[in-house]
Amino acid sequence: MIRIVIVDDHVVVRSGLRSLLDSKHDMCIVGDAADGDEAIRLARELKPDVVLMDLSMPHGKDGMTATRELKALLPETYVLILTMHDDGEYLFRAIHAGASGYILKSAPYEELITAIQSIAQGNAYLYPTATKRLMNEYLEKLRQGEHTGSYASLSDREQEVLVGIAKGYSNKELAEQLMISVKTIETHKSNLMDKLGMRTRPDLVRYAVERGLLSYE
C-alpha cells in the first residue's frame, strides 16, 4: 500500500485527487495539506511513502521550499511535483530540491497513477516532454559556460536577495523589504556567492543581467 499525502492550496483539487487515488487498491491517502508548512508537519507525523506536492501556494511555504526541507528531514519519503508550470527552470529547481518526479496537472489520470507507482519504487519520473527539455536546457547551460545547476541551487530567498542586490539595494534596504534582519541578508548573500562562485557585487549584477533576472516598471 502506497501511503500518500496531498499538498495543494485548493480544496477542490485535494478532494478530487483523494477520490481518484483512494479508489486504487494499492494507494491510501493518509492526509492532505494546504501549504508547505502543514505538509512538513503532516509528513513528520505520518511518514508517508509519497508526497504529491503543488508548487504555487500563496500562504506558508511554497512547494519548492517545502520539498527541500521535507527531503532533509525525511529522505525516505519521495516527493512528486504536481503542477501547472510547464517550465524548464521550475523543473531544474524541483529536481535540485530533491523531488523524485515532476508531472503536469493537465496529465491524464493514468499517467499520474504511473508516476506515483514509479517513484514509490524508488525510481524517477518526468512527464514525457520534460526529458527532452531537461537535456536541451542542460546542454544550453554547458554551451553558455555556466556552472550546471548553480542558479537552481539557490533557495527562493537567495534568489530574492540576488535580484535585490543586482538592483542596487543596500543590505539594510533589502532587510526592510523582505522583513528579515541585516545579518540574515548577509548570510544569504554569502551563501549565494559561494554557490555561484562569485566574489563581488558587480559579479552578481552581471550574472543577474545575463540571466534576464532584472525587470523594471
Results as ranks from 00 to 15, higher is better:
1 M>P: 03
3 R>T: 09
3 R>F: 00
5 V>Y: 02
6 I>W: 07
6 I>K: 03
6 I>E: 06
8 D>I: 02
8 D>P: 04
11 V>K: 15
12 V>H: 09
13 V>L: 01
15 S>V: 14
15 S>W: 04
15 S>P: 00
16 G>Q: 11
20 L>W: 02
21 L>S: 01
22 D>Q: 14
22 D>T: 03
28 C>N: 03
28 C>I: 00
29 I>K: 00
29 I>L: 06
29 I>N: 04
30 V>S: 06
30 V>A: 04
31 G>R: 03
32 D>G: 01
34 A>H: 06
34 A>M: 07
34 A>Q: 05
34 A>S: 13
35 D>Y: 05
37 D>S: 11
38 E>I: 08
40 I>C: 04
41 R>M: 12
41 R>A: 11
50 V>Q: 00
51 V>L: 09
51 V>K: 01
52 L>H: 06
52 L>R: 03
54 D>T: 00
57 M>S: 05
58 P>F: 10
62 D>K: 12
64 M>H: 03
65 T>M: 11
65 T>F: 05
66 A>Y: 07
68 R>K: 13
69 E>P: 05
70 L>Y: 07
73 L>K: 08
76 E>M: 09
77 T>D: 01
80 L>H: 02
80 L>Q: 01
82 L>R: 01
83 T>L: 11
86 D>S: 10
86 D>V: 02
86 D>A: 12
86 D>P: 06
89 E>Q: 14
90 Y>S: 12
91 L>I: 05
95 I>G: 00
95 I>F: 06
96 H>F: 08
96 H>T: 14
100 S>K: 11
101 G>C: 07
102 Y>H: 10
104 L>N: 04
106 S>T: 13
110 E>A: 14
113 I>Q: 10
114 T>V: 14
115 A>M: 07
115 A>V: 14
116 I>E: 07
116 I>A: 09
116 I>P: 07
116 I>D: 05
119 I>Q: 01
121 Q>L: 10
122 G>A: 10
122 G>V: 04
124 A>S: 15
126 L>F: 14
129 T>D: 10
133 R>W: 08
133 R>Q: 08
138 Y>I: 11
140 E>A: 14
141 K>R: 15
142 L>F: 10
143 R>C: 10
144 Q>L: 15
144 Q>T: 13
146 E>F: 09
149 G>F: 15
150 S>R: 08
154 L>Y: 08
154 L>R: 07
158 E>K: 08
158 E>V: 13
158 E>Q: 15
162 L>W: 01
164 G>E: 04
165 I>N: 01
165 I>W: 00
171 N>R: 04
177 Q>T: 11
178 L>Q: 08
179 M>N: 13
180 I>E: 07
184 T>M: 12
186 E>V: 05
186 E>N: 13
187 T>P: 00
187 T>R: 14
188 H>I: 06
189 K>H: 09
189 K>W: 11
189 K>N: 11
190 S>E: 11
193 M>Y: 05
194 D>Q: 12
196 L>N: 06
196 L>M: 12
198 M>D: 03
199 R>G: 01
200 T>F: 03
201 R>L: 13
201 R>A: 09
204 L>K: 05
205 V>S: 07
208 A>Q: 12
209 V>W: 04
211 R>T: 02
213 L>Y: 13
213 L>F: 15
214 L>V: 15
216 Y>R: 12
216 Y>D: 06
